[in-house]
Design a protein around this nucleic acid. Structure first.
Lengths: 200, 200
DNA sequence: GTCTATATACAGATAGAC
DNA sequence: GTCTATCTGTATATAGAC
């Protein structure tokens, strides 16, 4: 990161445009199939400028990943005022909506994690964190339902949460493998099945 | 594919060695990170010879994928003589054992399918086929259990099979994302949960 | 069949002018 | 900041001797 001397604003916009385009291209085509020259061409600048801003392709990649991860969070406030069953159903829907709205980057990060290649420790940690947050959120809801008696007394919050999350991941990758199939039926069945299992 | 003129046997062995090594390297490191030079070095031959045998890297890749897929099948005979619940549990175990014994290529194919990149139609069709076979095998077992009264009368064979398979896939990718965690606990819970749900 | 030597292309990165 | 021109490495692939 250099100084932004005189015409700083314009430079920021250029830098930003490069970053957006890089994030999109890396997501769509992966690191190996995204030469700097293509990023530069689509941004309407020279290769040299891209490298002037980001020093190396590796650093550009990391910066782009940061941007890709920006919209990744869970809005807990959505759950307020719902009973446990409705909260679980809402969490399942939130998961699916999130994936639907971020197909490219989810696909991209999934590939990164699965292949275990070129994922800086920070990135995999971040993804694992999100995973853990979602899982323990689910587990907390289940535990709360157990204590309040809206769910069965013999539920196992961490394992039930893990199983629900695993099913969601499975629906997700089946979706990536098999584009034509509509997942909503399976998703509805998933909710119904797990809710039935968890209630008394 | 050329003629094997005089010293045909030796050539076959060399060609075969190249193919095995290529299959392993592609699985472990992916297409982009496996230069022909590395295949050649590990096989103890020259780059030129690798290309003489397979014409291009692309064709070498396809030949290697064929070999990678060879051990992919389901041994249905394993299920004979078991009741439906035991068959379901056995199928779950078979899935996991298969993945454990073929980590590299499963990881590799999963990446290919998820990214949707460089997968010749034949390959993705083959993988989808295996998926469908496993799913309809599960569905058939569930349907048979429904008819024989060992499972609940209101099970939904295709959807229940889909859900079990999705859970398995989810456990699988969680495993790929999170190497240190032992999946056997979650897997046992998965079996227990679905069996409980399916029996009368 | 198998080699060495080479052609060709394209990637990431640098130098230096403006 | 941004460009053009160039360096350097490495990849696939070919030519031709043995």
């Amino acid at each position: 990161m250099r100084e932004q001397a005189t015409s700083g604003e314009h430079a920021l916009r250029t830098r930003d445009r490069i970053l957006s385009i890089a994030a999109r291209l890396f997501s769509e085509r992966g690191y190996e199939h995204t030469p700097i020259s293509k990023v530069a061409r689509e941004a309407g600048v020279s290769k040299a400028l891209v490298l002037w801003h980001f020093d190396s392709k590796e650093k550009l990649f990391r910066a782009a990943l940061g941007r890709t991860l920006e919209p990744y969070f869970i809005d807990v406030e959505e759950l307020e005022g719902l009973d446990e069953v409705a909260q679980i159903e809402r969490l399942v829907d939130l998961f699916y909506e999130f994936v639907r709205d971020n197909v490219y980057s989810v696909r991209f990060l999934l590939t990164l994690m699965v292949r275990g290649e070129r994922n800086p420790a920070e990135i995999s940690e971040r993804v694992r964190d999100l995973y853990r947050v979602f899982r323990s959120l689910l587990a907390d809801v289940i535990e709360s339902g157990r204590q309040r008696g809206t769910l069965r007394p013999d539920v196992n919050p961490p394992l039930d949460a893990g199983l629900i999350l695993a099913s969601l991941d499975g629906v997700l990758i089946e979706q990536f493998m098999n584009h034509e199939r509509d997942p909503s039926e399976l998703l509805a069945y998933l909710k119904q099945t797990f809710v039935q299992r968890l209630i008394a």
